[in-house]
Design a protein around this nucleic acid. Structure first.
Length: 215
DNA sequence: TAGGCCATCTGGTCCT
DNA sequence: AGGACCAGATGGCCTA
């Protein structure tokens, strides 16, 4: 499923590209030079300055402007806009690469999944959300058994621990979110199993988590 | 070929 | 002024 970036024009997103990407593919930028400046920004600055919160500010401002902003040629302005756009593109690219690196790191700490199937971004987020929820439930169950209460849910019947540790902790849990569910951790963690019944129960066991169960 | 996923560009908005 | 963040648009690649 995961599309391979082999043919992608851009650098493959990996952990190492995060640091080295700054300024990469600068010459590749093909921006349109006719991007108008943000009206709000111009307006905001003008309003701020011209509103004249301080007396004599406008005169000072004019003097400053006169000193600094000598009429630039259209060519120079266009060049400046292009340069700003290019820098913004570089930053945006870098920002997205950092975001992807964080997603990769998140994939790295999630339970095993088939090597040939890299989780997509949305799958990673949903997986992580449900996984955290399941771990939270595990802690709750552990707390209950600590105080001598009955287990919240019966353990999965087929569970067997290689080391003989208690597997009741990894009981049958219900994933709070479906594919279209909210990603808000607060929502599910607050409400937990009180949420509407999911499509299918998730049987948990350390080291044997089926990643598809969390999606 | 359609649909999914992704990277990139771009303009707008907010903040420092 | 410039950076960060965001969402929309676009085009490429891959798979069913």
């Amino acid at each position: 499923m995961a599309p391979h970036p082999s043919g992608a024009p851009a650098v493959q997103v990996t952990h190492e590209t995060k640091q080295t990407f700054q300024g990469a593919s600068d010459d590749k930028v093909t921006c349109v030079a006719s991007a108008p400046p943000s009206p709000s920004r111009v307006l905001g600055n003008c309003a701020e300055a011209e509103a004249g919160g301080c007396r004599g500010a406008s005169r000072k401002l004019r003097a400053r402007r006169g000193g600094r902003s000598r009429p630039k040629s259209e060519l120079a302005l266009s060049k400046q806009r292009r340069n700003r756009r290019k820098n913004a593109n570089d930053r945006e690219r870098n920002r997205m690469h950092n975001l992807n690196s964080a997603l990769d790191a998140l994939r790295g700490v999630l339970p095993t999944f088939p090597d040939d199937a890299k989780l997509t971004k949305i799958e990673t987020l949903r997986f992580a959300h449900n996984y955290i929820w399941a771990l939270t439930q595990t802690l709750r169950i552990a707390d209950h058994s600590l105080y001598g209460l009955e287990p919240l849910v019966p353990p999965c019947e087929e569970l067997g621990s290689p080391d003989g540790s208690s597997l009741g902790d990894w009981g049958s849990l219900y994933s709070p979110v479906s594919q279209a569910g909210s990603l808000s951790p607060a929502a599910s963690l607050e409400e937990g199993p009180g949420l509407q019944a999911p499509a299918s129960p998730v049987c948990l066991r350390p080291g044997a988590l089926a990643f598809s169960d969390f999606l």
